[in-house]
Design a protein around this nucleic acid. Structure first.
Length: 650
RNA sequence: GCCGGCUUAGCACAGUGGUAGUGCAACGGUUUUGUAAACCGUAGGUCGGGGGUUCGAAUCCCUCAGCCGGCACCA
């Protein structure tokens, strides 16, 4: 005699056990039709699941996030169903839900082509149109293993073999087709209406590069056509923000074959780069860092001592000189900074000692990893190492975390994910040291009041780390900032200081980077702002142009004046219509277009137009000067456009 | 590194075995112009590199490189 409590608090009583679908039908035919799954006492179940005792129930429809997940999961099954109908020899493996969709990995004798993809999608639509009932059955584990072995699904059999003996295994399917699955699934294939297969790709079985490669098909699925269309439009928009494309359009940088993974910075891109360095130099000087510079090329032996050769030797650039000495191009700055620390006898009074470097490093990254500015082989880190005592770790880490988050805010990034990465399998140092380092970093994260997600086994080979992750235009995450606690390298490279007790002690080294790679950070900045960099960062902040060439002299004069204020200003005196010039510089994302006609020359003003297309009218030169300088100096906290419109309306 | 795709003028692209094309940009000329594209003309490519098949290759095959999408990797 179950009593079902619904989300609005009302109760329904039933004589016998009832299914989720029956409860939905008892509420109304619309809900019965919309029901995709149910949530019984918080647990997601099929609409066919029966309830035989008192419970809370909410009916899950495509309006709920869980409903969308169920749709995606069922669409992955639909995909597998279609693939096996068209390619009976293909074996199924796994097909999880991911952000915006799903994928399914198949083992097949050849890769799927884009033509195959179209055929598969068509077959999926056909199966969906038949509105087949989705069925479920349960088998004991061993029977399930035997069953999948018998039908030639060896990957599935392997997956089930890992499930503890004695457990029941559920199988879901539609028509004659069936697959291992925990569920839940939609009640029938007709509920799957808005999906699209996106791409094929290779993927290793169980994510291990020692295993064979499977054929992965990615798809997207939504509650309705409208949502699907919106998603596809969003992808198109994101593509327009791609930093590689904007970098070319704005003439910021280029790559070429002779230097794979290395950037040729053009004047405008380099202006941005320098702007970031200036900014960071100021912030870290204020925070008590001292800047140093260490050699690009150092003897291989140093990297053997540090442990880098053993862990990353394959990814290091080596050089040999005519005298046959082998040198490595530095892939990191830490050993260099330790050499600076080691000069002379250090006292505990000097700690914490914060050494920073805009360090150019080279890493021979796997060819398949390269990606525009986001993953390069030659890049610049805003690197620093803080040499301190064990009891200074927490305070230093809190300072670093605060500084990183404050810096990200200045650039407009507020959605920052922080991961805590603990000891990796391949590491140096004893477990006791790792316990100590992980404990220290955990304390620090707690003291800084930040939320972290655990990234198990992803720490550096010498210590655990916090990773600060920013997201690009199409939702890919990139690690930028990092904070690592290291008890190992100082010992390996023999760093020490004299303590209060007149004895030698080993310092702890805290590694930190805030931009991480300046190249990557610029890539993310470009995408985040779709190329419309805030005025304080824009390579060209304003262009002064005349209506006709009669204003040339005036334009040059006012531009000169603004340049003397430290603003990055250009003139455009070409013999072209003003509309033409406005179009060009707007497309180049120049924040301010300053236009002079006869009226402006007469009144010693400039007409101001923003790259957003807003005409702010004419401003006195002195006033304009102040407003521009304020916006730049305040890093966008004072906005010229807002201040002008406020003044006008007030 | 692995799987797949791609590489034609500065950029975006067309061209499936028979004399390399279009648009924009560039350059030259005319137009002195009031807030997102004036008009006319000119030039530009050993079709990513190398090798092969063929009477003949941008086009078919092999190979190398780079790039793109994933996977693996990321100190």
């Amino acid at each position: 005699m179950p009593a079902i409590t619904l989300p609005d608090g009302s109760q329904k009583h039933f004589e016998h056990s009832v299914s989720v679908a029956e409860v939905a039908a008892s509420i109304g035919p619309g809900l019965a039709k919309a029901a995709l799954a149910g949530k019984v006492n918080g647990e997601l179940v099929d609409t066919s699941a029966s309830i035989d005792r008192d419970a809370t129930l909410s009916i899950v429809t495509d309006k709920d996030p869980e409903g969308l997940s169920v749709i995606r999961h069922s669409t992955a099954h639909l995909l597998a169903n279609a693939v096996q109908e068209l390619f009976p020899e293909a074996q199924v493996t796994i097909g999880p839900v991911i952000e915006n969709g799903f994928y399914y990995d198949f083992a097949y004798k050849r890769p799927f082509s884009t033509e195959d993809l179209a055929a598969i999608e068509k077959r999926m639509a056909e199966i969906a149109a038949k509105d087949l009932k989705v069925h479920r059955r349960v088998l004991p584990r061993d029977e399930a293993v035997a069953h999948f072995k018998r039908i030639g699904e060896h990957y599935k059999a392997e997956i089930i073999s890992a499930i503890p003996q004695g457990e029941l295994i559920s199988l879901y399917g539609q028509g004659d087709w069936e697959d291992l699955c925990r569920g839940p699934h939609v009640p029938s294939t007709g509920k799957l209406r808005a999906f699209k297969l996106m791409k094929v790709a290779g993927a290793y079985w169980r994510g291990d590069s020692r295993n064979e490669m499977l054929q992965r098909i990615y798809g997207t699925a939504w509650a309705n056509e409208k949502q699907l269309k919106e998603y596809l439009t969003r992808l198109e928009e994101a593509e327009k923000r791609d930093h590689r494309r904007i970098g070319r359009e704005l003439d910021l940088f280029h790559f070429q074959e002779e230097a794979p993974g290395a950037v040729f910075w053009h004047p405008k891109g380099w202006a941005l780069f320098q702007q970031l360095i200036n900014y960071m130099r100021q912030r870290q000087t204020e925070a008590g860092y001292q800047e140093v510079n260490t050699p690009q090329v150092m003897d291989r032996d140093l990297w053997v001592k540090s442990g880098h050769i053993e862990t990353f030797g394959e990814n290091m650039y080596m050089t040999q000189t005519p005298d046959e000495r082998v040198f490595a191009l530095k892939p990191m700055n830490c050993p260099g900074h330790i050499q600076v620390f080691k000069q002379g006898l250090r006292s505990y009074r000097e700690l914490p000692l914060r050494l920073a470097e805009f360090g150019a490093v080279h890493r021979y990254e796997p060819s398949g990893a390269l990606h525009g500015l986001m993953r390069v082989r030659a890049f610049t880190q805003d690197d620093a190492h803080i040499f301190c005592t064990p009891d200074q770790i927490t305070a230093e880490s809190v300072k670093i975390t605060d500084l990183i988050l404050s810096i990200y805010r200045d650039f407009g990034f507020t959605d920052v994910r922080i991961k805590f990465s603990d000891r990796p399998a391949k590491r140096v140092g004893s477990d006791e040291i790792w316990d100590q380092a992980e404990m220290a970093l955990r304390h620090a994260a707690a003291a800084a009041g930040i939320e972290t997600t655990l990234n198990a086994g992803e720490g550096a080979f010498y210590g655990p780390k916090l990773e600060f992750v920013l997201r690009d235009a199409i939702g890919r995450d990139w690690q930028c900032g990092t904070l690592q606690v290291d008890f190992n390298l100082p010992a390996r490279l023999g760093a020490s200081y004299i303590g209060e007790d007149s004895q030698k002690h080993m310092p702890v080294m805290v590694h930190r980077a805030m931009f991480g790679s300046l190249e990557r950070f610029i890539g993310i900045l470009i995408e985040h702002h779709a190329g419309k960099l805030p005025a304080w960062l824009a390579p060209v902040q304003a262009v002064v142009m005349g209506i006709s060439n009669s204003q040339d002299k005036y334009c040059l004069e006012v531009a000169e004046n603004l340049k003397n204020q430290g603003l990055r200003v250009e003139t455009d005196l070409r013999y072209e219509k003003v509309g033409f010039k406005i179009r060009e510089h707007t497309l180049k994302r120049v924040p301010f277009l300053l236009i002079a006609g006869e009226r402006e020359v007469e009144a010693r003003t400039l007409a101001v137009r923003t790259r957003g297309g807003k005409d702010l009218g004419s401003l006195e030169l002195a006033e304009l000067n102040t407003l521009l300088c304020d916006e730049v100096a305040s890093r966008g906290r004072l906005v010229l456009e807002d201040r002008v419109s406020q003044r006008r309306s007030g």
